[in-house]
Design a protein around this nucleic acid. Sequence first.
RNA 1: GGAGGCGUGGUGUAGUGGCCUAACAUGCAGCCCUGUCAAGGCUGAGAUCGCGGGUUCGAAUCCCGUCGCUUCCGCCA
Length: 602
Amino acid sequence: MQESFDIDPAQIDRFTCGTLRAANVGETVEIKGWVHRRRDLGGLIFIDLRDRYGLTQVVFNPEIHPEPHAIASDVRNEYVLAVTGVVRKRPDGTENPRLPTGEIEIEAETIHVLNTSLTPPFYVNEDGDVDESLRLKYRYLDMRRDRMQKQMILRHRIVKYMRDYLDTRGFIEVETPLLIKSTPEGARDFLVPSSSSPGEFYALPQSPQQMKQLLMIGGYDRYFQIARCFRDEAQRADRQPEFTQLDIEMSFVSQEDVTSLIETLFLEMTEAFTDKKLLFRPFARMTYAEAMDRYGSDRPDLRFGMELQNVGPALAQTGFKAFASVLESGGQVKAIVVPGCGNYTRREIDDLTERAKTLGARGLATIALSDDGLRSPIAKFLTEDEIAALTSGIGAAQGDLVLIVADAPAVVAKVLGGLRDYFGVLLKLADPDVFAYCWIYEFPLLEWDEEGNRWDATHNPFSGFYEEDRPLLDSDPGAVRALQYDLTLNGNEVGGGSIRMHRSEDQQRIFSMMGHSEAAQEERFGAIIHALEYGAPPHGGIAMGIDRFVMLVTGTENIREVIAFPKNQRGADLLFEAPSPVDEQQLIDVGLALRPSNPEKA
RNA sequence: GGAGGCGUGGUGUAGUGGCCUAACAUGCAGCCCUGUCAAGGCUGAGAUCGCGGGUUCGAAUCCCGUCGCUUCCGCCA
């Protein structure tokens, strides 16, 4: 390692590996970075030095500067170097037009190996697929890769855009605690014990919901926060145990005020950060009922059709009575037309039936309009004319596959909506260059919980409702429409919120319908109920999933790609190996004794 | 909790009963090479095919179990 400078350090300007251009030719500079690639030609050695700003070629010439050349001979990928030298125009014909710095190179006069590196377990200098567990175990190397750096930088810009957008509109950012009271509603809480109260627990917030409402009561009428949220539930491709939301709450606002604020923000961000074409401008709007009816989903992907069509009436007129009992008991018979799949084999159709069953169907009726004629297990119950009327009535053509489900409305929606999503991906029906935003609103406030024998909030128990539906709270609670709205994008829910109840008596009434006794309400929700009694202003807000949005903007397959240090599907941190057992003394401190998680096995 | 997919040198893949004494690319090590930029050439090391059991004359390959990762259902907004 060379310890002495041949050049007066005061005369040196430090640059990044991405900034030097032809205009810098002749300057003596220093750059520091990682060895991206080394090309040893025997005489000349070229090293591409990399940092997050780019690549710069350094050339070591043994005839001009033999000492640095000798050091460069032993350098390997991912070594950390400081190199000084003169910026030189590359010889004619050796420029690299693919690099922004490709016109120049640095002729190394000194080289300092700031650190060596083991051979990395995977390529840092290229973008190939690597087993994700390995990437997560060595996340710091993965983060060094170009793709991750681009995604993290883009994420930063998006969050900054949100902050600036809200700041200029008078919003203030307030931090709320991460150690809060556990509540039984919604997702399972992560619990946190503490030595100052052995046997008792904090919970990590599933969202800052109650805190932001208290801020409204406190007079901070325009609040936002980049809020970390925690839910101890199973992971998915788009779900992590801890995730980040843009959390917003406002006083004296209508549903329209909240959605238009967000709509402008997301319109601007889509234009600023993507090349996507906006399918709807302004955003599409659809009631929950319409979304479920037409798409079988409360977050429909509107980039393609394949809508659910009601074939109950058509079938009811025929002599085929198999679906009659379903219709009589309040069920539906609906169909989707899958284009170009009419020649599916028996095996493929069996697989579809299996897929339908995993989605909750009891069965799947199919009509394949194949080249060899019509194939359908229900054909024998219908005349040719009836089938022709049925298929043409829903727009099915030669070569298409018709899928029919008869069941309760919720099951029909779940199954056909799920199959629609499946074919949307399989048949590449959705244009990846399109962003289709849609607001979904008029969600039901409550749904009947069979197991709990009580009403349950579909969103959260603080959502308000349409005043004109108030009488329905007595007569037909399931029909009460919440003042709730979700923003969906290409089949994903990217955010949701509501206008809250701001009167204590309304809030208590809903809690009561949800089966909470007066005492339980006091114990679990006393703080918010009482706060509402002290001049709580009308208020409402929304929370946007930042990870999910960045995932859609970057076009990445899962949420882990846009989180610096994510957990795997089991919720494990493979880098630090968390969660992990703790010392006995730590358990004693917080008053805990462990018991086997599965007593039957133990 | 349930279902599917995957698991083969460091990495990414091929091989799906005998031609496997496991192949290819890349990476790694050594040597050669003064204008490369995915540098090139030569040589070499590196895998008991996730693990355990079974079927078979013979298993990376088939069966059972198990572990890990992942996607979906349940769960979760």
